[in-house]
Design a protein around this nucleic acid. Structure first.
Lengths: 162, 162
DNA sequence: GATATCCAGATAAAAAATATCCGATTAAGG
DNA sequence: CCTTAATCGGATATTTTTTATCTGGATATC
């Protein structure tokens, strides 16, 4: 059970996009260089962010990506759902209907207890993701990292949009 | 992000093994027939259960699998860990070290804030799994299902060990 | 000794994740 | 108007993971 690399990539990228001044954007190539990830594939992940309403894109020369909303309105759950889709981790294939003692469809109106139990756990997971916003993560990062490094990144961003 | 089929299979199977009288076991073939899942592959999953200490096996004729402990000592987390292994869903590849603003290893002693945030969510997931035991699930199932179906399964188990 | 069973390792097939490429569109700037 | 830089969507290729099977060996029962 693993999350795609896109989740890691785009979460980090959102923390960079958050540093952009109003009206500016960063190209996929610039972002791919910044994190040394494959540009063409990252492009796909960014499109997923856009479709989910987390980022917005501007086409054409001097275009690029930027955040669509404020960092305190973007939770980790938003990002995971954008990249991974809405499917639950536990896949119930209704094997209770199989075999010599299989249940008939009419006796399967309520979900089976095992599927429900896993669904409960996934709800806890989602809630934990939802309660953590980009804003919170960036604040933690700011207090943990050196002022030099923060400056380094800000300078890089400035250079890109100059 | 998906759990393997083995998680669904073996969880259901544990609820059947729990019905066995002391000292008896069920063969992989019988279990595979019961749920109509591929026998050879199920065999692998059952071996994982055994190595995790959830089930124990008896070789030779009239051998098979049975639970190694009581149902209230087996949590869903135990089963997931047995089948899926201990790896976290979020894979931190330390991309903060990459690119023009990459951090040096000495500045990465504490885990990055993003990885920590996902780890928190996974902790919530694991705890929710751990708090749900086979005993609890079976009790729910017993109250939700018809007495006829319970009897049907009990009869099938009896026939297998006869 | 014949049979039924688990076990470990090797291998194969199918599915999913990862990655790349290309043609179309769109906007900026000379 | 033309060139350049950028996203977009679709098609395709590669790699990895999951799913599944096979085979030979060990072991216990009858």
């Amino acid at each position: 059970m693993q999350l795609g690399k896109g989740v890691e990539w785009t979460t980090h990228i959102c923390t960079v996009l958050a540093l952009l001044p109003e009206g500016k954007g960063l190209s996929v190539d610039a972002l791919a260089d910044f994190f040394e990830v494959p540009s063409a594939y990252l492009s796909k992940q960014m499109q997923l962010l856009r479709r989910a309403g987390i980022a917005e894109s501007v086409r054409g020369k001097r275009g690029g990506y930027r955040l669509a909303t404020s960092v305190d309105a973007i939770s980790l759950l938003d990002i995971v759902r954008a990249i991974e889709g809405p499917m639950p981790a536990f896949r119930c294939t209704e094997i209770r209907r199989n075999g010599p003692c299989g249940l008939k469809p009419k006796d399967c109106k309520r979900p089976c207890e095992i599927a429900s139990a896993f669904a409960k756990a996934e709800d806890a997971y989602r809630q934990a993701l939802q309660s953590q916003t980009l804003a919170g993560i960036m604040q933690e990062a700011a207090t943990n990292s050196s002022p030099e490094h923060v400056m380094e990144i800000a300078t890089w961003v400035q250079r890109q949009i100059a």
